[in-house]
C-alpha cells in the first residue's frame, strides 16, 4: 500500500468504490475480461474490493477465436490461480460463416465476433451490468463517457441522452431490458495502468514484454505470425524481430512495436519517452473519423 503514490492510491480507492457500487446495486453483474493489461488491473482491483470474499460476479471473455495463443493460456491460468468463474462466449453463427479478420477485414470481423457476440452473451445470461476496463484517455469519444453508462434494450449507446454524473453518486436505475456499462478505470491513464501494474506486481500476458517474435510488416504495422491461419502475401516472409505489444487484441489486427523493454520498469520508461498513443496499434479505430463513437453506438464496448 505504501508503495503507491498518492495519485495511484486515489485512483485505486475510487475504482474499488465503483466496483462495490456495482455489486450492491445490480442483480446480475459481469466483469468483461479481455485478458489485456487493463483487464488485469480491473481484475486485481475486483479481488481487492471484495476481499476477503471473492468478487460476486463471473468473468466473461468474448472470444473472437483470433486472440494470441499466449493470451488464452494466460486467461486460463489466471482463472485457475484466482479460483474464479469464467464464461467464454463465441459467436457460433459468425464462426460457422467463417468470419475472420483475414478474409472479411477488421470492420466486419470486429462487428460480428466482438460487438454482436457481446450483445449475444449479455442477452443470453441476462446480465444487467457489464464492467469494462475502458479508460477516458484512450480516444476522444471515450473522454465524454460516463462511469455508469446506460444501454438500451438493443445495447445501443445514445451520446445525447447520457445522465449527468455528479460527485460520486451514480444513478444505477434501469428500465426493463436496459443494461449498464460500468468503467471503473475511467480516470486512469495508460501510464497510471503500467505504474500500478509495476507497484502491485500484477501478472500480465508475456506479449507485453519484448522478445524475438516472427512478424511481417503490413501497412506500416508489424503483425505477428501467431499461427498458420495468417496467409502470407506474395514476397512476405516472417522475420524474427525484437518486439512487444502495447495493446492486445486479435493478432492479425494488432501491431507490435520494436522494443527492447523486457521488464515493467523498462516498459514504463519506454512509455514516458514514447510519442505514440497506444490505440495506434489497433486497425479498427482508423476506419474513419469518429469510428469509435459509431462502434459504441452499435454496442461495441
Amino acid at each position: 500500500m505504501t508503495r503507491l503514490s498518492d495519485h495511484l492510491k486515489k485512483l485505486e480507492d475510487e475504482s474499488i468504490f465503483i466496483l462495490r457500487e456495482v455489486a450492491a446495486e445490480f442483480q446480475k453483474p459481469v466483469l468483461l475480461y479481455s485478458i489485456g493489461k487493463d483487464s488485469s488491473v480491473l481484475l486485481h482491483l475486483a479481488m481487492k474490493a471484495f476481499y476477503p470474499a471473492k468478487p460476486p460476479f463471473p468473468l466473461l471473455h468474448v472470444d473472437t477465436t483470433w486472440k494470441f495463443a499466449e493470451m488464452i493460456a494466460f486467461r486460463d491460468e489466471t482463472v485457475r490461480r484466482l479460483g474464479l468463474d469464467l464464461i467464454v462466449h463465441i459467436n457460433e453463427q459468425g464462426l460457422a460463416e467463417g468470419i475472420s479478420p483475414v478474409t472479411h477485414g477488421s470492420a466486419v470481423h470486429t462487428d460480428v465476433m466482438k460487438t454482436v457476440a457481446l450483445r449475444q452473451a449479455l442477452d443470453k445470461y441476462g446480465f444487467d451490468a457489464a464492467i469494462g476496463g475502458a479508460r477516458r484517455d484512450e480516444e476522444k469519444s471515450r473522454a465524454k463517457e460516463r462511469i455508469f453508462s446506460v444501454r438500451s434494450a438493443q445495447h445501443r449507446w445514445d451520446p445525447k441522452s447520457q445522465r449527468p454524473e455528479l460527485w460520486r453518486i451514480f444513478n444505477t436505475r434501469l428500465r426493463p431490458k436496459e443494461s449498464m456499462r460500468v468503467f471503473p478505470l475511467s480516470n486512469w491513464t495508460e501510464l497510471d495502468v503500467w505504474s500500478y501494474i509495476e507497484a502491485e506486481s500484477i501478472p500480465i500476458v508475456p506479449l507485453y514484454f519484448a522478445a524475438e517474435r516472427p512478424v511481417v510488416e503490413r501497412d506500416g504495422m508489424l503483425i505477428m505470425v501467431d499461427d498458420a491461419r495468417l496467409p502470407l502475401q506474395q514476397g512476405e516472409k516472417p522475420q524474427m524481430r525484437r518486439v512487444r505489444f502495447r495493446t492486445l487484441g486479435c493478432y492479425p489486427l494488432t501491431g507490435a512495436i520494436e522494443s527492447t523493454a523486457a521488464s515493467l520498469a523498462e516498459i514504463v520508461d519506454e512509455l514516458v519517452e514514447a510519442r505514440t498513443s497506444e490505440r495506434q496499434g489497433r486497425v479498427i479505430d482508423k476506419d474513419e473519423a469518429g469510428s469509435m463513437e459509431k462502434k459504441k453506438q452499435e454496442g461495441y464496448f
Binding site: S141, K144, Q162, T189, A289
Partner: peptide
C-alpha cells in the same frame, strides 16, 4: 484535441463534459 463527439466537431461547439488527463 478535446472535442470528442462527431456531432460536436461538425457543429464546432462542445456539448458534453470531456475529461482530460
Amino acid at each position: 484535441l478535446v472535442d470528442g463527439l462527431q456531432a460536436e466537431r461538425e457543429q464546432g461547439i462542445t456539448i458534453d463534459v470531456a475529461y482530460r488527463y
